[in-house]
Design a protein around this nucleic acid. Sequence first.
DNA 1: GATGAATGAGTGTTCATTCAT
DNA 2: TATGAATGAACACTCATTCAT
Lengths: 212, 212, 212, 212
Amino acid sequence: MKENKVLSSVKDEELIKIRRDQMIKGALTLFKEKGFHRTTTREIAKESGFSIGTLYEYIRTKEDVLYLVCDSIHGEVKKRLEAVVDVKKPTIENFCNVITSFFRLMDDMQEEILILYQEVKSLSKETRSAVLQKEREMASMLEDAIRTCLPHELPKQDITLLANNLLIQGHMWGFRRWMLQKEFTLEDYIEKQLKFALVAMGIESSTKIGEG
Amino acid sequence: MKENKVLSSVKDEELIKIRRDQMIKGALTLFKEKGFHRTTTREIAKESGFSIGTLYEYIRTKEDVLYLVCDSIHGEVKKRLEAVVDVKKPTIENFCNVITSFFRLMDDMQEEILILYQEVKSLSKETRSAVLQKEREMASMLEDAIRTCLPHELPKQDITLLANNLLIQGHMWGFRRWMLQKEFTLEDYIEKQLKFALVAMGIESSTKIGEG
Amino acid sequence: MKENKVLSSVKDEELIKIRRDQMIKGALTLFKEKGFHRTTTREIAKESGFSIGTLYEYIRTKEDVLYLVCDSIHGEVKKRLEAVVDVKKPTIENFCNVITSFFRLMDDMQEEILILYQEVKSLSKETRSAVLQKEREMASMLEDAIRTCLPHELPKQDITLLANNLLIQGHMWGFRRWMLQKEFTLEDYIEKQLKFALVAMGIESSTKIGEG
Amino acid sequence: MKENKVLSSVKDEELIKIRRDQMIKGALTLFKEKGFHRTTTREIAKESGFSIGTLYEYIRTKEDVLYLVCDSIHGEVKKRLEAVVDVKKPTIENFCNVITSFFRLMDDMQEEILILYQEVKSLSKETRSAVLQKEREMASMLEDAIRTCLPHELPKQDITLLANNLLIQGHMWGFRRWMLQKEFTLEDYIEKQLKFALVAMGIESSTKIGEG
DNA sequence: GATGAATGAGTGTTCATTCAT
DNA sequence: TATGAATGAACACTCATTCAT
């Protein structure tokens, strides 16, 4: 369903999936290395294991590849996040687990997140909207995680903001790694950010902060 | 002093400054519109008000323009941030003022910040380091603002993290505007983020959150 | 074998040969007219019968074209020289035939030789070495022609020098044509130079000179 | 008289001479290093010790510089050759001295000669003619040297050819240095070429060749 | 006379895209 | 369906030349 925006002149849906997966894998490797603009379609085709002609049987423009890659990154994040969030245990402990898992996931996918930050602007307005929609869904998932575990009510805006803060704190671990990863281990980072979040949510007393 | 890394074949330092300012202004306009890669050197020259030949009298490569622009953005941010932070009144009120000013500044410079996020990767390793150094300085300024106003000690890591969080929350207002600016006014946003920060710093009790 | 130093992004070896032959022919025409530096790659492409894009599918830099042309000239000279020298009849008559053929060949290829004289310096050091090596082989061929037909021993250096003299006397016919071809017919030129050579080799008595 | 073909907007003849001498010196240095085409007018101006604006006060086009340089080289060769040839002693010994001096001169001016061989083609037809005329004069000087010392008559063509041969043998020492200067010392080279010349002139018996 | 900033046509080279096989 | 040779618009950058000061 998700890739259907991108037209292909090939009919066999199965084949389309296979080829596009090859393509996404190949392109992702290259985008991590040199970014979207510095990567040529020829390189993508080669890295994907087929010819430039074949590449263009499955996409229409180079931008399509970028969209496919962004979409795939979001898909991967969502899939892995759902696997954790899905648990409907509204406890603080569960909240902590979700957030911890989320941060670990962000650590795992640093380079992919970086691509989203740096290359989404190269998508056309239309396509970019589709990608941003995925971002909104991601925030929603965190909002749910927050809401379901709160022992007390919190204004909607606070939840939205907390979710967004946690989201970009996850991203930040990757895109400010040159600053953070020299001063924090991942575990430190998670622990501290989690504490800040809990305090902000009115769960843990602020006096505890810094005691760990 | 700051632009001296970029070589010019023109000797008149005064003139270099004038032309580079024109150039930065022109390039910034274009980069906001279409990004660095989609902007041609000819367009930069034209927008700056001179010929392509003249452009190259003041820089050596297109990347130089990007560096000049990034450097100029940082310079502007720093200048305006210093004007507020400089006040050496170690009170909580002062801290709130600094952060508020900082968020307002980030609102003002949304598009510039976006450029930093998206284009710094196009700089060469060497130049990128220089730019990231400026980022570190920015974080330091916020750390100072936090430290000087705290009524009690806080672990170094906590301060670093709080500063980084505030920093990217400021950035986020711009780069996630499609999400945040539909749900928050700038004033709301500042107020909420400030409260979260104060609580995290152990200053305001968490119970107050949401009450305002 | 000889053109393998120049990389092509086209895989079909047969096609590479065809296109490069077109290219060499086109470039040679232009180089004769206006020299290497004054000829643009676009002109080469056009004269060769294909687009600038296609040109660059078969070479990597403009210098490659020059190398291909120089290499081709040497190949042609060598091929045609070998056809005559190869005869292993160690007689003076044979020597005269070889030298005569060589001078005729140089007459035929005046403009090509001129290109070698004027443009080899534009090759990179590495490539230039490869071309000079061909020059050495050419001299060797003449040395062989001299050695095999001599009725008596001659010091190695004398043979080397005689070969080099004959070689550049052949070249000179072309590059000093503005002087020589107004005063000599090709036949005169050959006859005189041959006599000088024979006398120098101690074969013909010097008293004969000027008698013919 | 000689440089008058090149127009200057400066009136002071004395100054023109001074500036052009600086210019020739600077340009020559650069042409030896990187050839005419790879040298920019800016570089010439800088190496000459004045600005690009001043350069263009004394010439009209870049080609003028090349002409001035070629002309200066010829002037230098002629001046130094005349100093030797001028002696009107028609002896064989004198001939040998002249030729020896000539070869030494060619050794001295290898790089200048190389420039003549490689760059004259970049002159316009008109200017080129003027330069070739100088070449003819050079040949004439050698013809004179031959003629005056011959004990017996020789056909005009023989003299012309001998002069041309000696001339380019002198040049060859420089432009084929990669081949000759590995196998011959300058003294060897002169001695051998001189012997060949004498034999060709019917002066020394051919049996002597190789005995030295 | 001297300067050097300004100009813009021109250059080598790249690369997304097409299409005949 | 797959291939890869062909295309040419587009790009970053250079440099001879001019001219106001």
